[in-house]
């Protein structure tokens, strides 16, 4: 579903690559934790899949399409197949819960009656039935993230990307969000979640891909994550 082939990504004015010769393959319906410290390249991976960024070298394939050679006018079409959730929710503060979710369908030209059916259904699924008329500031962090997930999932994308979705939430609330993502994964949606929350990773026991300074240091099914474990750089030092 998602394939990185020897992907290297440089950003302007930084000598070290954000991703350094990364090759990953993620299959349809998988649930993958992308772990690593801040600056390890997790967000770069997500941006590359969204085609917010293009690799400096190597290729990124999503659903069989080579994103590096995709022309600009096809990018919107590509993004409709992705749902994306962020740490900071990114809701529109002037719009209600319902409007926030409906917005995602309106702007891709969905018909009114489709929206009337799809939005309540997805709000029900994420557990926000009855809160359609609230505005984001009237909701708790967990509820706001549920709105964001509803917005990402309302178009039933085959891939859901989540960049630190629990980063701003307390452990109990995070658990609820994880259950929701798991539930979405069970419908067949491929879920890639970037996180550095050890507790969640270790509790869920899904596939773990660990990045350190832009390099894949571990790719393990039903893996764990121990951020106190010496990172690659330190290992090199101790070995020396």
């Amino acid at each position: 579903m998602i394939r990185f082939e020897n992907v290297t990504k440089f950003y302007a004015r930084t000598p070290r690559p954000a991703l350094d010769d990364v090759s990953i393959e993620i299959g349809r319906g998988e649930f993958v934790f992308l772990v690593g410290a801040s600056g390890s390249g997790k967000t770069s991976c997500i941006s590359l899949v969204q085609r917010e960024e293009r690799p400096s070298a190597g290729k990124v394939f999503v659903a069989g399409r080579d994103l590096s050679s995709m022309s600009a006018w096809k990018v919107p079409e590509h993004r409709r197949k992705l749902g994306v959730v962020f740490q900071d929710f990114r809701l529109l503060p002037d719009k209600t819960v319902y409007e926030n979710v409906a917005f995602a369908l309106q702007v891709i030209g969905k018909k009114r009656h489709t929206i009337r059916l799809a939005v309540p259904e997805v709000l029900e699924m994420v557990g926000l039935a009855g809160k359609e008329k609230r505005r984001p500031h009237e909701l708790s962090g967990g509820e706001q993230q549920r709105v964001a997930i509803a917005r990402a999932y309302v178009n039933r994308p085959p891939i859901l990307l989540a960049d630190e979705p629990t980063g701003n939430l307390d452990p109990t609330t995070s658990l609820g969000i994880m259950r929701l993502l798991d539930q979405i994964n069970l419908t067949g949606t491929t879920v890639v979640m970037a996180t550095h929350d050890e507790e969640i990773v270790n509790q869920w026991r899904k596939r773990v891909i660990e990045l350190d300074e832009g390099v894949v240091v571990r790719d393990q099914p039903e893996g764990i994550y121990d951020s106190s474990r010496p990172a690659r750089g330190e290992l090199t030092v101790s070995e020396a």
């Binding site: 993004r79 409709r80 990114r90 995602a104 702007v107 917005r151």
Partner: peptide, 13 residues
């Protein structure tokens, strides 16, 4: 904000 969301969910240019 709206523009960012529109791009995110794949609204055409």
């Amino acid at each position: 904000r709206e523009t960012r969301i529109m791009r995110l969910v794949g609204a055409s240019t």
